[in-house]
């Protein structure tokens, strides 16, 4: 399985590093030169890392793991008001982006209050489009427990955050993340954010393991590269027109105009439409592509 990493090093001889990645069957996702430095985000099968580490040592570069590099994570706030934004919701979002994640902040229409709280079906579908979610639910245990019941239908891994340090019988809960009036930058607060990251990582590892049992027909990074090479996606929303998911991609292009084109993309010996399902996103007019597994296509695990 491909894993995402970030290389930080000097611009001098960095092309040697890029060549090594390509020789090993890896994929360079993004290259950002900054004067004499360069940041390279790349994906590579885990078993080839030892060889690559030797090259990195030779070039005196730095290798950083970005475990959420192939994920899109939803950070769900009860609303988009000053009560919940920018702290702690944006702090969490910013923290996860350091580990490579693409994050979307989702504000519920009526996620606040106790008796009036609700999460609509559409909101659940929007959140489910992501690979994982983090819910930020205020500072009172009783309210958090009520809100937690409403999330039972969700199948994606999610972490609940709130004010109380611990809540009994809620295993996916991280405390000390209630309402904040300032940025979370103290050592204790960073530790709490680390806790969220580690819990999410644990849950996502289970999902990866599950995917590994019946692997996807192609790794999403490989499909991403094929799409970007075959179609001009410039002028898309944001600077990253194709966002990686654990089981596919989000392509930030209008569904009606592009889905036929995208489904004709050649990936290996297949046409993409035959090895994936494409649907319109519930969040905005983008394309959600879910890759089929090897067994679904008929190649067997």
């Amino acid at each position: 399985m491909f894993k995402m990493h970030l290389y930080k090093g000097g611009i001098y001889r960095h092309d040697e590093f890029i060549e090594a990645i390509e020789d090993l069957g890896g994929i360079v996702m993004q290259k950002t030169p900054m004067q004499t430095e360069v940041d390279i985000v790349f994906a590579i099968p885990e078993y080839d890392m030892d060889y690559l580490k030797k090259i990195i040592k030779k070039l005196k570069g730095e290798l950083i793991d970005i475990p959420f590099g192939d994920m899109e994570i939803a950070i769900v706030a009860p609303s988009l008001s000053r009560h919940h934004l920018p702290h702690p919701v944006c702090d969490m979002s910013e923290f996860l982006r350091r580990y490579g994640s693409t994050t979307n902040i989702v504000g519920l229409a009526r996620g606040y209050g106790k008796t009036i709280f609700q999460i609509s079906d559409k909101e659940k579908r929007i959140v489910s489009e992501h690979d994982a979610a983090i819910f930020s639910f205020g500072m009172f245990e009783e309210c958090i427990l009520l809100k937690e019941k409403e999330l039972k239908g969700l199948t994606l891994p999610y972490v609940l955050c709130g004010g109380p340090g611990k809540i009994e019988n809620v295993s996916n809960y991280v405390g000390n993340l209630g309402r904040k009036s300032g940025r979370m930058r103290g050592p204790e607060e960073i530790k709490t954010l680390e806790e969220v990251k580690n819990l999410l990582l644990e849950m996502v590892d289970d999902v990866r393991e599950e995917i590994g049992k019946d692997p996807l027909i192609f790794p999403p990074v490989y499909v991403k590269r094929a799409i970007e090479q075959q179609w001009d996606l410039s002028g898309s929303l944001g600077d990253n027109p194709v966002v990686l998911h654990l089981d596919g991609l989000r392509i930030k292009k209008p569904f009606d105009e592009y889905h036929e084109r995208i489904s004709k993309t050649k990936v290996g010996e297949y046409e993409l439409g035959k090895i994936s399902t494409l649907k319109k996103s519930n969040m905005n007019d983008t394309i959600i592509l879910t890759l089929k597994t090897k067994s679904e296509v008929g190649e067997g695990p």
Binding site: S81, H83, H84, Y112, G113, K114, G138
Partner: peptide, 8 residues
């Protein structure tokens, strides 16, 4: 208003 819970 920014201290009290939003829905109240």
């Amino acid at each position: 208003w920014s201290i009290l819970p939003e829905g109240f």
